[in-house]
Write a protein that binds this DNA or RNA. Structure first.
Lengths: 218, 218, 218, 218
DNA sequence: CATGAATGAGGCTTCATTCAT
DNA sequence: TATGAATGAAGCCTCATTCAT
């Protein structure tokens, strides 16, 4: 955990530090990321980092936590209940994701980059936890839809839940493979990753939904 | 590319070297992987590596290529045509994948680990290329199935192809998340990753097929 | 020297600070001892230490002085004159030493640990001075015993004095080597070092006296 | 243990390196001793040290071993049997010690400095072992002298053995306290510690023997 | 062609000390 | 007077890479 010293830092300075490290970790792997480099860019003393965090890993884990919380403020802000059906809710999730990404590109891509850093056991555990969180969320919704008689009931909930989770991540991947977006470059250039790509994104989402609906609906 | 020196090495020695590095890269990230360590375990001179390869990256890229080729010998050994329908072929792909994994665990998991090493632009490019190769393969089949009037034709082929690709990788992931398999540990313990898990694997495959068929079939 | 600021601190607080540092220096070498750690445990500001002392060495030297003074309150409380012969007095010294140790384990073992910290010239000088103090004390007594016709007079007083001094320290050492006591562990566990070892200690003292008497008596 | 790399180094270079580190460790405590400094003085790369030794401690332990072995070549070269009585042998030990010191001042004072480095558990263990070796050696001789009817038999052998061991170290200490020798300075100035002090040393030895004989002889 | 010693940049981390509040 | 954030030098260690043998 970060020390009080860090938490009590002025909003501005704290943000500046957080963002500098997010940028580093969003572009590099945990090992490649160099505290020395970041510190140099920040113009602060190397020792200061160790007044703020226990060590490199502590700093990294803190960033995971905060980013996840920021993201949850978006995707956790709506409940499935308020929507006519599950797919409307599912669609909304991507709109919120888009918004999260647009307003917090660093956080968004730091989280995307997480998968490259699961070598360290601690990071691995945290990553798995985050993943499970999401998968279970989908699992619950699947269970509810089945109960409501809207989803088929001849398959394990876990399979269906995992599939939904994967559809989500696949969309970003496809756009990346098809060069619609380029997170790495965007981060370096300090521009939103989905800049001008809202339509493409939501169109892809709609396609995916159209595709997989028959797989889930009763 | 590896030098002729390397290629003319005795089969046995070459394999021993390749496998040692595969093991290292299958368990560690590119940065964490230590040539020094591997060389020590191999009992060969550090300098030799630089007679065989230009540098660490060159060695790594070489491994990507060979592993991919080995894998293609499995999954490329059958054609969709020979099967009653696409899903029978799709299912066969996993049986072949299982076989590849059982007979080449190092290669298999080196490839799985690739995603964690896409930081270097060269690796990234190669990774994307491999991915595209696979996605396009599925794309072609989708196109053919549409032509045969068996798949729906109201969605972009690319979306459907990518989806199929993702289903494939999701299966391994789900088994990992649900702790059915533990690649990292298996590699370290030098045992096949899917040892005794064939049934579980194919059952999961069948579930996924059952799930997504309605999404693709006309 | 400590500043007035320190001396005017409340008895309780001053003691708390002193003991925390004694504990650190009693277990670690001067270099290993970390002011940061102690300050953290104490819950006081780092800067305060520098209001109390000039620097780490100043603090250390202060502790040497106080500990020595405490010790002198014990071993300096009796005079050889009051005893039937020198050896009765010598024996008493150990009883007092035992008492000092039992009642001030931190101070006692900080002093024992001194020998490991004589690298800094200042510490070295102080250590030598303390040692000389003790050696000279014994020297004077030897001189007196010679005058009284009780000790042999065919050897330098300094040799005899030093020998007596060394016998003293040897006793603790022997008990340590033979694992009867374990100062390091005792300090960490916050228990008296000679707990339950009074008999063993005095028995060893008696053995040493029995051994060396013929060397000194006329 | 040092690597083969180190052992196969040219005699000259190896000595140069060993001596540089001995000098550093003979003057500083383990913690204060700076590999960086030594390496700079030596004009070799920092990394080289880690081709020779596993780490700082490994290097240190190696030095302890070699120095001890060198010393044993001196003091272990004679057996008590060859002497008319124990005290003649005891005296010889110091002549050999003097010789060892004169011919290997670095090694000699590195060993003397050991006591300041017993904070690290590994060093502590080794130090205790060395000490015990010596103490037991004296113990055995005491036992034999008792058997021969030359030493008194009314006291524990361990007490008598430890006393003899301590007499040995006391002699150097006394000369140090009395400023006859100044190991620290001598090392820095690169001159033998006992230069021109042979007479003083042996006179002191003789005094000690004269003093303690009555304590041991029957 | 193989060797393996040497390199030195660079990484993370610790710590006593300073100084503005 | 007390605080504690900031400092930055210094430490140990790792590693890919080079090059003379």
């Amino acid at each position: 955990m970060p020390s009080n010293t860090f938490l009590k830092l002025g909003e501005e300075k704290r943000k500046r530090i957080e963002e500098a490290f997010l940028r580093e970790f969003a572009v590099n792997s945990y090992d490649e990321a160099s505290l020395s480099d970041v510190v140099k860019k920040l113009g602060i003393a190397k020792g200061s980092i160790y007044q703020y965090f226990e060590d490199k890993l502590d700093l990294f884990m803190y960033l995971v936590h905060t980013c996840n919380q920021v993201k949850l403020r978006y995707v956790g802000s709506v409940a499935a209940k308020g929507f006519p059906d599950f797919w409307a809710y599912f669609r909304k999730l991507f709109e919120l994701g888009y918004q999260f990404d647009a307003e917090n590109p660093l956080q968004s891509h730091f989280l995307h980059n997480l998968v490259r850093n699961v070598n360290s056991p601690s990071v691995r555990d945290l990553y798995d936890e985050l993943m499970l969180q999401s998968v279970r969320g989908f699992g619950k919704m699947v269970a509810m839809e089945i109960e409501l008689g809207r989803f088929r009931d001849d398959l394990p909930v876990s399979t269906m839940g995992f599939m939904l989770f994967r559809i989500g991540t696949s969309i970003q991947e496809q756009l990346e493979v098809e060069k619609e977006i380029n997170p790495g470059k965007s981060i370096e250039d300090n521009v939103p990753v989905y800049q001008g790509k809202r339509e493409v994104l939501m169109q892809t989402v709609d396609n995916y939904i159209k595709l997989v609906r028959p797989a889930f609906d009763k």
